[in-house]
Amino acid sequence: MTQSNQQQSSANKISLYLMFIVLIVLGLSIVTLFSAVYAYYILDEAIVAGFLIIIGAFALTLSGVVLYQTRRNAATLKNDAPKMMTIIECKNCGTKTTREFQRGDFVFKELDVCQKCSEQKQMITGVYKEIKETGKIYAI
């Protein structure tokens, strides 16, 4: 087992512990909701049933939110490399192509002769990553 796997598993241990608590709360909330139904139909206690429904629904929502947050945190733990793009241009005919970055690419690096005009060497004019803004936008 590599060191990074060990780290990942130790990070997962925390979420397992949390998951255990969340599952208990989830189970209790379901029991509460069943009790509410029981109190309403069998015991004919509308108010007690109302109480139980509120408590059950609150616990259910809370455990759902915590579960969602934990999953989101676990997802951010992955160290994904962004997709890098390289722009290649021919200064003679103006052909512009974009391809995925390859090791050794750098801006102003001269490549093979342009296949379209066969007159001038192509050149890398840009290397960038394209990302989508995922955060909330506060328009003020």
Partner: peptide, 17 residues
């Protein structure tokens, strides 16, 4: 803090690797 520290350790070890 502990959960952030775990994440930080993961990032640090990835960096070393």
């Amino acid at each position: 803090v502990e959960s952030s520290l775990h994440k930080l350790r993961f990032i640090k070890d990835e960096g070393r690797k």
